[in-house]
Design a protein around this nucleic acid. Structure first.
Lengths: 153, 153
DNA sequence: GGAAATTCATTCGTATGCAAATGATATCAA
DNA sequence: TTGATATCATTTGCATACGAATGAATTTCC
């Protein structure tokens, strides 16, 4: 086979590759759609709170009072994003803020009584949201999927 | 077993359940993180285009000229979102818009020469993005994961 | 044919999500 | 101790993402 043949094959192969690129088969595109579906299920069951807002309340319930930044780390939100989420929860009376006595940079966030009531009331709904999101899979598939998804995240 | 025992068990079970709710094990939370990681990988490799913008170009390459709404359906974006994406691609000269001759409601979107060049140039990078996103998994795990993820999306 | 329903696109409002710049405070190190 | 660094929070700017309302054009159906 001549060098020209090799070049030709290489070019053809690359063209075939590019022609084969299908958006709807790419993991990023499907991840985005799966996430969209979950958010939609969440909104249908918990209309008055977004998933990030719920995450903030649920994590505060776990860990108690923390700094805004630390909370952001725990729920995978950068500082700018977590600020907006906490601002809105505060405006609704679900969390309260105070300054750290020693380290005056830190803004401590904690649940109000109303916030605690809300998260306790919502957790059973959140369980149903998880179930509905996973409903297209069998129990065995769920176990496999969660294991692999955790590896990716 | 008495009715009171049943009630007691039920109550205890529910309390245990609520205590057991762990945000970091919920599929929605992990989906969000996996999606974040993918977007981050994408941004590192393709800095001057977002995943939704790339999706619009890639789909236009597949289907040729389409209406803005139809394109939105194909790439899973509602009308309001797709408008913003197309506006920005148009501002950069990657797509061009025209009115449908018969149905004057429709706004036809198509790639410019520059847009076609861009998407052809980026597809190899997109392949690498997919690979890097899936890198934590073995080939066999990838096959399993993609099958299950598709079921969820 | 014409009223009702549908479709396509736009706009507005709200909520993430992140990069980059800034200011205040704390910590580290020479 | 003080100068360099690092951390915490805020702000700005840009880009999805979606519900709801609106207007224009088309289709349906009586």
């Amino acid at each position: 086979m001549s060098g020209e043949d090799n070049l030709l094959k290489l070019v053809e192969a690359e063209e075939a590759d590019d022609h084969d690129y299908l958006l709807q088969e790419q993991v990023g595109f499907i991840l985005r759609k799966a996430h969209q579906r979950h958010v939609s299920i969440f909104a249908a069951r918990i209309g008055d709170l977004t998933p990030p807002q719920f995450a903030a309340l649920a994590k505060l319930r776990d860990v108690g009072e923390t700094s805004q930044n630390q909370l952001g780390t725990l729920i995978a939100m950068d500082a700018a994003t977590v600020k907006g989420v906490i601002d809105r929860l505060k405006a609704r009376g679900l969390v309260e803020l105070s300054r750290h006595e020693v380290d005056k940079r830190r803004l401590l966030v904690s649940l109000t009584a109303e916030g605690r009531e809300a998260i306790e009331r919502l957790i059973p709904l959140a369980r149903e949201i998880t179930q509905e999101t996973l409903a297209p899979l069998t129990n065995k598939e769920i176990a496999t999927f969660m294991k692999l998804l955790a590896k990716l995240a």
